[in-house]
Lab assay of single mutants.
Amino acid sequence: VSEWTEYKTADGKTYYYNNRTWESTWEKPQ
């Protein structure tokens, strides 16, 4: 699942961004 990158927002929430599909999600990808 290497295309997903984990980021943190300014208020400390974690989200995930897909470099291949430009998708972002709050849930941890499978």
Rank of each mutant, 00 (worst) to 15 (best):
N18F: 02
V1P: 15
N18W: 02
Y7S: 02
T21N: 08
T9H: 02
W22A: 15
Y17K: 03
D11Y: 06
Y7K: 14
T5I: 08
T14H: 10
G12Q: 02
Q30A: 12
W26I: 06
P29A: 00
T14L: 07
W4M: 05
A10V: 10
K28H: 11
W22G: 15
K13P: 00
S2L: 11
T5R: 11
T14R: 01
G12V: 00
V1M: 15
W4I: 05
S2W: 00
W4D: 04
Y7E: 06
W26K: 02
K13C: 10
S24G: 13
K28G: 07
V1W: 14
T25A: 11
V1E: 14
K8P: 03
S24H: 12
W4L: 04
E3C: 08
P29F: 10
N19Y: 05
A10I: 08
P29E: 08
N18T: 03
Q30C: 14
K28M: 10
Y15F: 14
T25L: 10
T9R: 01
E6I: 06
V1D: 14
Y17S: 05
K8G: 01
E27N: 09
E3S: 01
R20H: 11
D11F: 07
D11P: 00
W22V: 02
T14E: 07
R20Q: 15
T21D: 07
D11L: 07
Y7Q: 08
E27G: 06
E6G: 02
N19W: 08
G12F: 00
T14D: 01
N19H: 12
D11G: 06
S24D: 01
S2P: 11
Q30S: 09
E23A: 07
W22N: 15
Y17N: 04
S2Y: 14
P29R: 00
E27V: 13
P29V: 05
E3V: 01
A10Q: 13
E3P: 04
N18S: 04
K28F: 13
K13E: 08
T21H: 02
Y16M: 02
D11R: 01
T9K: 03
Y16V: 00
V1I: 09
W22R: 12
T25E: 01
N18P: 08
K13M: 11
S24M: 15
E6R: 01
Q30R: 03
E23T: 00
P29Q: 09
W4E: 00
K8D: 00
N19E: 12
T21G: 06
T5K: 10
D11Q: 04
E23F: 04
E23V: 06
Y17G: 03
S24F: 14
E27Y: 09
W26S: 09
W26D: 10
T5E: 07
W22L: 14
Q30K: 07
N19A: 08
V1F: 15
T5N: 06
R20F: 15
E23N: 07
R20V: 10
T5D: 09
S2F: 12
T25H: 05
E23H: 04
E23G: 04
A10R: 10
W4S: 03
E3F: 09
K28L: 11
W26L: 10
R20G: 15
G12P: 01
K13Y: 14
T21I: 05
S2V: 08
D11H: 07
E23R: 01
S24K: 13
K8Y: 13
R20K: 13
G12A: 00
E3N: 06
G12N: 02
K28R: 10
K8F: 11
N19D: 09
S24V: 15
Y16I: 03
T25D: 01
T25N: 08
Y17P: 01
Y17R: 05
D11M: 02
E6A: 11
K8M: 13
G12L: 01
K13D: 10
S2M: 11
Y16P: 00
T9E: 04
P29I: 06
D11S: 04
Y7T: 09
